[in-house]
Design a protein around this nucleic acid. Structure first.
Length: 361
RNA sequence: UGGGGUGUCGCCAAGCGGUAAGGCACUGGAUUUUGAUUCCAGCAUUCGUAAGUUCGAAUCUUGCCACCCCAG
């Protein structure tokens, strides 16, 4: 039987390096594919993508696999970044990485991989996939701390065809150990953070390059003016830092938090000390993607995350239409934010997710 | 112009003769493939200013300055 070919998305980090290595060990014909989806230089003028690519080259040479590079900067700009900016303009807080998976990694990247002769594609995501009754199930990773199914909530059933996630059965520490054992140059490289392909940077300054600042008033929940904001899009619900509000006579010693944005009046609402206005139990969600292609009932209980790295919360789902639901949480949730994704789980299975549109109660 | 009050870090604010608490903000770091949150660390040789008393003053005295309130 001919060797199966796997194209691995390689970012230049440990995870994708080890993913490629493991597949090679498993006997696949492995090809590394590096994506460059962002052209800007970082503030210090040094292009991190270049450094990452160097690492990809080193790792591929080490494990002896061919590698290529592709540039989806245009697709990224059109299908991810424009949406990202539009959401901020509308007063929401988008999650570009969720879309990046659906629009770039599991779409353009996959198409290109197939064109290169791939039987499968693989990434260094921490998650698992299982096929049962002809359906792809997206499952949480063994390392619950690193589980990345949250970011894959918009990926469709078809997009999961012929996908491998070799890291899903490992702990992060094991992955690093494997990299060390094989002497990969990325073994001790720091985990990347920040928006995928754009990287860690001063978020405010970054946004300022694209969205004009429109200063306005900051009011407390009693309607008193307590300060001035530099532009609503630079703040998100639940945020504390960057509001620049210190002690105010009679307001006690609490921290200030953003609790609401009025995009029409250009007003930022804040609360001092008291975080109770941030808590809610019911929200509406649209653009619901069911990885198994449909909800299994009109109403059901499951768990949900309202942001990455949040512990799962017990919730009840009420299906409105196929792609819109109402989520009612058993307990109050802090700072549920429009534009973010609510992702549903049932035990190990990631059911999918959608965009939070309204906080109802 | 009389009478009273207040001036301590960007903002609140302790201190009341023994050698500058705390909170918020801010900065840096940790955590983190979104944005946040959280955590840890740093952050006034100086107390409106000038002089005096004292072994020693932000704390007492006096002058000056600024602001606030009441009266005119």
């Amino acid at each position: 039987m001919a060797k199966k070919t796997v194209v691995v998305g390689m970012s230049g980090g440990v995870d994708s390096s080890v993913a490629a290595l493991l597949l090679k060990e498993q006997g696949y014909n492995v090809i590394g594919l590096f994506m460059k989806n962002w052209d800007e230089k970082t503030e210090n003028g040094c292009c991190t993508a270049q450094i990452d690519y160097e690492d990809v080259k080193r790792v591929c040479a080490k494990i002896d696999i061919p590698y290529y590079t592709v540039n989806f900067a245009k697709e990224y700009m059109e299908n991810v970044f424009q949406y990202f900016l539009a959401a901020y303009k509308a007063g929401h807080t988008p999650n570009p990485d969720v879309l990046c998976n659906r629009e770039i990694k599991f779409k353009h990247f996959k198409e290109r991989a197939v064109a290169l002769g791939a039987d499968y594609i693989a990434t260094g995501h921490y998650c698992n996939i299982a096929v049962k009754d002809g359906k792809n199930y997206l499952l949480k990773s063994k390392d619950r701390q690193k589980d990345q199914t949250y970011f894959l909530n918009q990926v469709t059933q078809r997009q999961l065809d012929n996908v491998l996630f070799p890291l899903g059965i490992y702990e992060k520490t094991q992955v690093r150990a494997i990299a060390q054992q094989y002497n990969l140059s990325t073994a001790t490289k720091k985990d990347s953070t920040g928006i995928c392909f754009i990287g860690e940077r001063n978020f405010r300054k970054f946004l300022q390059n694209y969205l004009p600042a429109q200063p306005g008033k900051i009011l407390n929940l009693q309607g008193q003016e307590v300060g001035e904001h530099i532009g609503l899009m630079y703040y998100t619900i639940g945020q504390r830092r960057g509001i620049n509000l210190g002690g105010r006579k009679g307001d006690g010693e609490g921290r200030w938090f953003v609790v609401k944005k009025d995009i029409n009046k250009n007003i930022l609402y804040v609360s001092c000390g008291d975080e109770s206005p941030l808590y809610s139990t019911v929200c509406s969600v649209k653009n619901m993607n069911w990885i198994l292609e449909k909800p299994f009932a009109k109403q059901f209980d499951c768990t949900a995350k309202f942001r990455y790295r949040q512990e799962e919360q017990k919730v009840t789902i009420t299906v409105q239409a196929n792609d819109s639901i109402i989520i009612t949480a058993d307990e109050g949730q802090r700072a549920v934010t429009t534009g973010q994704y609510a992702v549903l789980y049932m035990d190990d299975i990631c059911l999918g997710g959608g965009v939070i549109t309204n906080i109802l109660e």
